[in-house]
């Protein structure tokens, strides 16, 4: 398992799907461990009832069907597919609605889905997904990217306490890939994936959605910064180490560490 995870952080994130399927065929006994520890870019399906796209993950899957957050039904149709309780479904509907607006404001497009289900204890788990195609043939408004994909997976465990607070544990993964291509600079390709965790105890006075939303917004901004400043900065630093820019025009690279 350790060797498998080491391979996953060495192989290019652009090839993670092939790498994971190879590891799954090699290590069938570890399939659930691998699937839970390795994230892949999200797949999209269409809810033919509401004619809206939704995102697929392990959390809305049952057998070969996936539950749409819009109509609360499975596609392809599935009898007796598990559904969230009425109370959680209400929260799920609201979360999907609000998260769509959040997504529109930050992503100017893209697809989002939120799934909520009962936890083993008295709490619940919510999974917030976002996928954006920022390429010029997709929803890239500025049209600078030949290829540009962003996938965000936020899984948040919520455990309400007696005293009107709740414990929130958030695990977020961002996967992205961008490519530009033109005559002077050729092809320029950056791909990355990072995962971070964060836990907070918060008062539920303003509601779970408000707390979860703020945590996700904060985490997404941190991860985005980290990718842009630290991780991409490190690759740039490497280029400058291999072949330093001529003196005088050297652009200073801030020393930075990952969060």
């Amino acid at each position: 398992m350790e060797a498998a995870l080491d391979l996953m952080r060495r192989i290019s994130p652009k090839k993670s799907e092939t790498a994971l399927s190879a590891l799954l065929s090699l290590l069938p006994h570890y399939s659930s461990d691998l699937l839970s520890q390795v994230d892949l870019p999200l797949q999209v399906s269409t809810d033919t009832t509401s004619m809206k796209d939704f995102l697929l993950c392990e959390y809305n899957r049952d057998a070969d069907s996936y539950r749409s957050p819009w109509s609360n039904t499975y596609f392809p149709p599935l009898e007796d597919g598990p559904l969230p309780s009425e109370e959680l479904r209400k929260l799920e509907v609201e979360a999907n609605e609000v998260f769509s607006i959040y997504r529109d404001q930050y992503y100017e497009g893209g697809i989002s889905s939120v799934y909520i289900w009962e936890d083993d204890d008295h709490g619940f788990v919510a999974c917030f997904l976002i996928k954006k195609d920022g390429s010029k043939t997709g929803q890239g408004k500025r049209g600078n990217l030949q290829e540009g994909s962003w996938d965000a997976i936020h899984v948040i465990e919520v455990n309400p306490e007696e005293d009107g607070t709740a414990h929130y544990c958030l695990t977020s993964t961002i996967m992205l890939s961008l490519a530009t291509e033109n005559k002077t600079s050729g092809t320029f390709n950056l791909a990355g994936s990072i995962r971070r965790q964060m836990s907070l105890d918060l008062s539920v006075e303003e509601g779970h959605l408000c707390n979860m939303g703020r945590m996700i917004e904060d985490m997404e901004s941190k991860l985005r910064n980290s990718l842009e400043q630290v991780y991409f900065g490190k690759t740039r630093e490497m280029v400058c180490t291999l072949r330093p820019p001529p003196e005088g025009v050297q652009i200073c690279i801030p020393e930075s560490r990952p969060i």
Binding site: R9, S12, P13, F188, N189, S193, L227, T235, P258
Partner: peptide, 11 residues
Amino acid sequence: YFEEGNVQLST
């Protein structure tokens, strides 16, 4: 660059 993540540049 792969400290707590995996980021690759190729040009």
